[in-house]
Amino acid sequence: MTSRLRLAVIAGGLLFLLAAPYLAQVTGSAGLLGLANRIAIYAIAAVSLDLILGYGALVSFGHAMFFGLGGYAVGIVAFHTGAGEPMLGWQGSNAALIVWPLALVACALLAAIVGTLSLKTSGVQFIMITLAFAQMVFFVLVSLQSYGGDDGLLLDRRNTLPFIDLSRPTTFYYVCVALLIGWTAFCARVVNSRFGLVLQALRQSERRAINLGVDPFPFRLTAFIISAIGTGLAGVLWANYARFVSPDMAAWSKSGEFIAIVVLGGLGTLLGPIAGAAVFIALEQILSIWTEHWMIVMGPILTLVALFGRRGIAGRLFGERNG
């Protein structure tokens, strides 16, 4: 029963993601495509965060820094390319195949530094330290006056791919969905590999895993970096989607949103966070249309999710958490 239900829900979700542009056209609401696109982008970040939150039990309260950095890498390169000012001798480029990997490498480097320092601690210190590093990135972004400072940067146009026209909303949307599916499949492989099993063993009983001869640090650091790359990818896509980056992308509240999405969807399920992203973004949209004071509803909802929603949407549908 559950496995058929599970398949049905996955198929339904996939169908919705693929059919969203068609639905938007039929109903004549261009907003629906934008909504679906935001969901797809946030879902990539949520799946990535779930990798360390759900499987590694590393509560990172600073993942927005990778979202912000990924976005700013795209924004800054576009700024220099557009203005014709070389940066460090490089003329800049508009090609996604050059800019995007560059942005992801930047995220991986930042994650290596932050992870190395933060993983010296655990528990509540880890939460506070990841938050503090994200705040540091936030302030650095605010202080970048030549890149707009507080106001952020506008991008002239999206990055370009060969044969694929990213400036068409529908095409861009399908690229985001394809990346979401590909990234989720990759994360699923990671989770079920030996590496992923060790990561989960460390979550279940660190002491036992250590006594079996596992050194926790390299496993956790690697997971942290993979997770940061995925979140950075979401930031890259967001910069291209909105054609605008601002320090708000790295704000602490963004990190909080990511956590909320993962918990809402179901910790340690990978597919759950995608559902979480859909519910969260749609709820945000509906509430903000309904009243400008929508936070007064959203806040208590998050509190209630924390108090009662132990297993999230995926947990309710599919039973126990994976792993």
């Binding site: 918990v263 208590p300 998050l302 509190t303 999710v305 108090l307």
Partner: peptide, 10 residues
């Protein structure tokens, strides 16, 4: 974290 984050927004 999540519960008290909700309280901040509220």
């Amino acid at each position: 974290v999540l519960a008290t984050l909700g309280l901040i927004l509220f």
